[in-house]
Computed example of a mutant assay.
Amino acid sequence: MPPRVRTLSQAFRAIFGRRAKKIPLDAGSSCPNRDGALSQNGCLFCNAAGSGTGLHLKGFGLRAQWAVLSQPARRRNEALLAYLQSFSNTYGPPERLAALLAEMAQLPDIEGICLGTRPDCLNNKKIKLLAAAPVAHVRLELGLQSANDATLTRINRGHTAADFARATIDAAAAGLSVTAHVMAGLPGESVADFLATVDFVAALPIAGVKLHNTLVVAGSPLAALYAAGGYVPMAREDYVTAVCRAIARLPVQVAIERQNADPAPGELLAPAWAADKQGILRDIAERLEREDIWQGMERKTGKCLRRPGGIIPPGPP
């Protein structure tokens, strides 16, 4: 029986022929949603560190970070990928991106590059720079969160779903792999809204997807909304249901790179269940097994799909 979910590990094995490791690096990038170009408040849910290590502010350059953080994976003979994770790493002039790529290309034993960014921080010139990087694999992690433009306005994203679609199509056409970030439990959204976002990204040329539950973290605008009673986090059972339904709707070739969010130590305010990362993963795995759900079984066709051992009807949206 084939696996129920295609993982990033499986995708990387197909690319590199062995295990691969993304080494998180901090390039000191900014974000138009924080420096005043769009806003100074950031996205509603975002923490102050932009989900990064903060090592750049402590004076560590990319090479110094790489030298330390890549050692465990190097000892395991894993393929090494530089991962610019925090904030929007293609923000700014193309010359800055070109300099970052040139610096990363010189990192010892590097085989791939992953960059987190926003769809409105990409253009054709930047995409061409990324496509020309002298490594075996370049992966763009693009934040979408929701395909509903009203939600995007509500959470202060500063871009539209159409911006995401354009960036994804252009990047994929240039040979880049795109990973979409989507969130369940955003203010004003239901499970059905989340699944509509999943359907939106599934119709685009994505190589991967990261599924996140919405976290209320200290210092975020969402924390203030939560404290005032204006936001109720998603229930654990509802999130497990949402993820399992999303898995069923995603194409089998898409790597499901994450199934739940990973709060940093000390930042989580709510929901309390989000701290139990491994328990949530077990809940999802058990639900997939119990209900015989597998990736791609519901591809917006409204039809029953055949799997070895029986016919599985599509569930409710």
Rank of each mutant, 00 (worst) to 15 (best):
G175A: 09
G296C: 06
W273S: 03
L25C: 06
V68G: 00
E298H: 14
L186P: 01
L152W: 00
A207W: 02
P32T: 13
L305E: 13
P2I: 13
F164R: 02
L25Q: 01
I293S: 02
G185Y: 03
R245V: 05
I15W: 05
L62C: 02
L107Q: 01
R6P: 01
A37G: 04
A275N: 15
V217R: 01
D163S: 03
V217E: 03
E189M: 03
L288D: 03
A136D: 09
E103P: 05
L222M: 12
L250T: 09
Y83H: 05
G175L: 13
G158P: 00
R4L: 04
A102S: 15
R290W: 11
A248K: 08
G158I: 12
R307T: 13
L142V: 11
A223P: 00
A227E: 13
L222F: 04
A99Q: 15
F60P: 01
C46I: 05
A227K: 15
G230T: 10
S146H: 02
A98W: 01
L250P: 00
L107I: 08
L142G: 01
K128V: 13
I293G: 02
M104V: 15
R74S: 12
A73M: 03
S146P: 01
S220E: 06
L130K: 04
A150N: 08
A99S: 14
A207E: 00
Y239Q: 10
A132Q: 08
L268E: 03
I155V: 14
N148P: 00
A132M: 04
T7G: 07
I280T: 13
L55M: 12
R157P: 00
I110N: 05
A162K: 13
E298L: 11
L69E: 04
A196V: 09
H212K: 08
R6K: 14
P119M: 04
A203R: 15
A11K: 01
K210R: 12
C244M: 05
Q295I: 03
L129F: 06
G54Y: 02
H212Q: 09
G309Y: 03
E237H: 11
I247V: 15
A275M: 14
F12N: 08
H181C: 13
A180I: 15
S30N: 12
R96E: 14
A174C: 13
Y91T: 14
L142Q: 02
R6A: 10
G116C: 07
A167S: 08
L69H: 01
R118G: 02
G28C: 08
L215C: 06
Y239C: 08
F200Q: 04
A228C: 12
A147L: 02
V252C: 10
D109A: 14
I155S: 00
L211G: 04
A180F: 10
N213T: 14
G92Q: 07
G92N: 09
I23D: 00
A162R: 13
F60N: 12
P3D: 12
A133T: 07
I15F: 09
E111T: 04
S9A: 15
L38C: 10
G230H: 07
E267T: 15
Q259H: 02
K125Y: 11
A172L: 10
A264G: 10
H181Y: 07
V252R: 12
Q145R: 04
G302E: 04
T160Q: 06
G302Q: 09
I169N: 07
L186C: 05
L107D: 03
G17R: 08
H56M: 11
V182R: 00
